[in-house]
Simulated assay, not measured.
Amino acid sequence: MLSLFKRLTLLAAVVATVGCSSSDENEATQPAELVDFAPVISVDEVWNRWAGDGAGTESWLRLKPAVDGDAIYVCDADGDCYAYNRHSGDRLWSVSFDLDVSGGVGAGSGFVAFGTLDGFLVVLNGQDGSEVFREQLTSEVLSSPAIQDDLLVVQSQNGHVFGFDLKMKERKWHYDATLPLLSLRGTADPIINDKVTYAAFANGKVVALDNESGVSLWEKRISIPSGKSDLEKLADVDGTPILDQDTMYAVGFNGFVRAIDLYSGRVRWQKEFSSWVGPAFGFGQVYLSLDNGELVALDDRSSSVNWKQDSLLNRRLTRPVTLGNYVVVGDFEGYLHFVSQLSGTFAERIRIDSDGLLSPPIVVGDTLYIYSSDGTLAAVQIREES
């Protein structure tokens, strides 16, 4: 696999190609100027708190928070971890580790977990932040661990997936995917769903793993390496897929968005789109933040394009999420954009942090939580509609 430096260089080249601003770029690749519109909803920050130094403005780490019960947890890149009451924003505890945190936080069953650049998995007690155990993995961890009941699943950058028994504090199983030499610097989060864990890889595949044994139940390719240049051959599935009832929706870089039967792995439909962030689902539609900054809504049955929003070109959009009647994305200037799920028109826009938003928002109930590049943790709600 590539060194950290080479991965950063490769990702920087990709971003420059699809929309990172520079002095000599042409108009087609410059971030779009924000358009004016008349807001139709009221969106408020319920609270915001300083939660460490974030990932930093020069980093591509997606350090998203996680919720378990009434608590929300987050760690910054320097190893400072925090717990807050997710309703009031009151701090519950904070702890510091001499570790370079590189993956987002996972939480569940009273545990909190994160991964590091040195390849450690660290598991904490959710009540007070005390360390429960840590384990050396095979490489850096750039995704959030998943927790369900007594099972914790974590994925490392080099394609290894580990299942841990939280009661026994020991490894339960291990799965190893074969990856290409070249890949983007990022990893999709594993997803635990009942008796199966789903994982996506830089080889362009998604895999279903048995939760008891880690054995592969099926695998399906989302992206196919093609082209002559190294950039054209990239086929990563870095965006976490989304599950809805019996269907998985997954999208890859230089690939497709595919609707896949969760039980058989059969492809129900596919559409040629490219994205390095995962999709969202709502109102019978699949939402994609494309590499070029377009926001697209696809019909979940036919895959037809219901609408496109192209006013955010090259603004390096986060993964979309749905909140109420709206789909929400963040951008590189720290704005959250609220777009109608029905029409694709803008409803409101608020700014969280001028240093930018890279980590994907998360939604719990009627509240959206976002962790910004400078360490601002914010809770956002739609207050009323006109």
Results as ranks from 00 to 15, higher is better:
residue 193 N to W: 08
residue 194 D to L: 05
residue 195 K to P: 01
residue 195 K to D: 00
residue 196 V to K: 01
residue 196 V to R: 01
residue 197 T to H: 01
residue 198 Y to S: 06
residue 198 Y to R: 06
residue 199 A to Y: 01
residue 199 A to W: 02
residue 199 A to C: 11
residue 199 A to M: 05
residue 200 A to M: 03
residue 201 F to P: 07
residue 203 N to L: 10
residue 204 G to T: 04
residue 204 G to N: 07
residue 204 G to C: 07
residue 205 K to F: 10
residue 205 K to L: 07
residue 206 V to N: 03
residue 207 V to H: 05
residue 208 A to P: 08
residue 208 A to C: 07
residue 208 A to I: 05
residue 209 L to P: 00
residue 209 L to C: 02
residue 210 D to Y: 00
residue 210 D to K: 01
residue 210 D to T: 00
residue 211 N to I: 00
residue 214 G to W: 01
residue 215 V to A: 04
residue 215 V to H: 02
residue 215 V to Q: 03
residue 216 S to N: 05
residue 216 S to T: 07
residue 218 W to F: 12
residue 218 W to Q: 08
residue 218 W to T: 09
residue 219 E to W: 04
residue 219 E to C: 04
residue 221 R to Y: 05
residue 221 R to L: 11
residue 223 S to D: 14
residue 223 S to E: 14
residue 223 S to I: 14
residue 224 I to D: 15
residue 225 P to N: 13
residue 225 P to Y: 12
residue 226 S to R: 15
residue 226 S to P: 04
residue 227 G to V: 12
residue 228 K to Q: 14
residue 228 K to L: 14
residue 229 S to R: 08
residue 230 D to F: 07
residue 230 D to H: 06
residue 230 D to V: 09
residue 231 L to F: 07
residue 231 L to Q: 06
residue 231 L to W: 03
residue 231 L to Y: 06
residue 231 L to A: 06
residue 231 L to D: 02
residue 232 E to C: 03
residue 232 E to T: 03
residue 233 K to C: 04
residue 234 L to I: 07
residue 234 L to E: 02
residue 235 A to S: 06
residue 235 A to F: 02
residue 237 V to S: 08
residue 238 D to V: 13
residue 238 D to E: 13
residue 239 G to M: 13
residue 240 T to H: 13
residue 240 T to A: 13
residue 242 I to S: 04
residue 242 I to D: 02
residue 242 I to Q: 08
residue 243 L to R: 14
residue 244 D to Y: 11
residue 245 Q to P: 01
residue 246 D to S: 11
residue 246 D to L: 08
residue 246 D to A: 10
residue 247 T to V: 09
residue 248 M to W: 04
residue 248 M to S: 02
residue 250 A to K: 00
residue 250 A to M: 00
residue 250 A to E: 00
residue 252 G to T: 00
residue 252 G to K: 00
residue 252 G to H: 00
residue 252 G to F: 00
residue 254 N to P: 00
residue 256 F to E: 09
residue 256 F to M: 06
residue 256 F to H: 07
residue 256 F to P: 02
residue 257 V to F: 09
residue 258 R to S: 13
residue 258 R to N: 10
residue 258 R to W: 05
residue 258 R to K: 12
residue 259 A to D: 10
residue 259 A to I: 06
residue 260 I to D: 13
residue 260 I to Y: 09
residue 261 D to I: 10
residue 261 D to W: 09
residue 263 Y to R: 15
residue 264 S to E: 14
residue 264 S to P: 10
residue 265 G to I: 15
residue 265 G to D: 14
residue 265 G to M: 14
residue 269 W to G: 15
residue 269 W to I: 14
residue 271 K to H: 15
residue 271 K to Q: 15
residue 274 S to L: 14
residue 275 S to C: 15
residue 275 S to Y: 13
residue 275 S to T: 14
residue 275 S to E: 15
residue 275 S to W: 14
residue 277 V to P: 04
residue 278 G to P: 11
residue 278 G to W: 09
residue 279 P to Q: 11
residue 279 P to G: 12
residue 280 A to N: 04
residue 280 A to W: 05
residue 281 F to G: 04
residue 281 F to S: 10
residue 284 G to P: 04
residue 284 G to I: 02
residue 284 G to F: 02
residue 285 Q to K: 14
residue 287 Y to V: 07
residue 289 S to V: 11
residue 289 S to N: 10
residue 289 S to W: 08
residue 291 D to N: 13
residue 292 N to I: 11
residue 293 G to C: 09
residue 293 G to P: 08
residue 294 E to F: 12
residue 295 L to H: 06
residue 296 V to L: 13
residue 296 V to N: 10
residue 297 A to D: 02
residue 298 L to K: 06
residue 299 D to M: 11
